[in-house]
Design a protein around this nucleic acid. Structure first.
Lengths: 146, 146
DNA sequence: AAAGATTGAGTCTTCAATCTTT
DNA sequence: AAAGATTGAAGACTCAATCTTT
């Protein structure tokens, strides 16, 4: 059994790799979106979750869990999307404390436009470093961290 | 040759894993530091780079490259560390535009104190999910992204 | 009392402009 | 002109408090 009190050399190397990947490749992908005059990744994530949810929409608390965001953080993100007309906020019939979020046509269009740049960025900044088998290995290992 | 224009399914899965890992496991490690009343990870990183640099210290631009931070971002981080007495700012003899940063005794002590919590956090939140061989694989794959 | 959601105030980050030295 | 570094203002994030409904 691996010790749970002190990380092994391998564990520390992987941890540092994770932190650095964030600041290198994720930053470069964000930079490509910005260079194309597009909003940040968090907007894409929210729009995509809402588009996948379809006509039923999503409760803010459900979107919060899907995106791993704090409640107050999501509240402000949704507010920005709403002000830009990308997301609708409807009263929730089953629970009057909450609301239901739905993507608008404008939101769908922006999501799609972002994907054109985002997909190229993922491929060029990230995918290009791995074979499909390596990417699958990486995905499998990282998925354990959820 | 893998396409560089559209990411493969495996690439997208690995990319999503990377983004989610950031928001789950990195957030949990940060939360442990905060729960122990300690400063954020970025302080640790900066102190550790300066401690490794030894008596010669580091130029801000060198620390910037080591930490993959923007210039203005580093400037403000160093400012916070300096105000807390963790880092010294000395004039640079070879280049009067710049300065040389050096960790103080207080800074060394805090870095060490942080490591006690940080090490346990890395092991418990991250390392526990992998065998040493898996961690080595993960480290090797992620290191390509630098 | 707990869950869903929002908000004021403070902190941190980002952008663009600035200053000094090379 | 370019490199090293800082800063004012604006935007985003975090904490704690708040409000409503369950």
């Amino acid at each position: 059994m691996v010790s749970m009190n002190q990380p092994s050399t391998e564990t520390v190397a992987a941890w540092i790799g994770l932190l650095r990947a964030q600041r290198s490749v994720v930053a470069r992908v964000e930079a490509r979106l910005k260079a194309a005059g597009l909003p940040p990744l968090s907007w894409y994530d929210a729009l995509w979750e809402l588009e996948k949810a379809g006509d039923a929409g999503l409760r803010p608390c459900a979107l919060e869990r899907a995106m791993l965001l704090e409640q107050y953080n999501l509240s402000r993100l949704v507010d920005r999307l709403h002000r830009k007309g990308l997301v609708e906020k409807l009263p929730c019939p089953e629970d009057r404390r909450g609301s239901v979020l739905a993507i608008t046509e404008t939101g769908r269009a922006l999501r799609q436009q972002m994907w054109a740049t985002y997909a190229v960025a993922i491929a060029a900044e990230f995918g290009v470093h791995f074979t499909p088998a390596e990417a699958a290995t990486l995905a499998a290992l990282l998925s354990r961290l959820d």
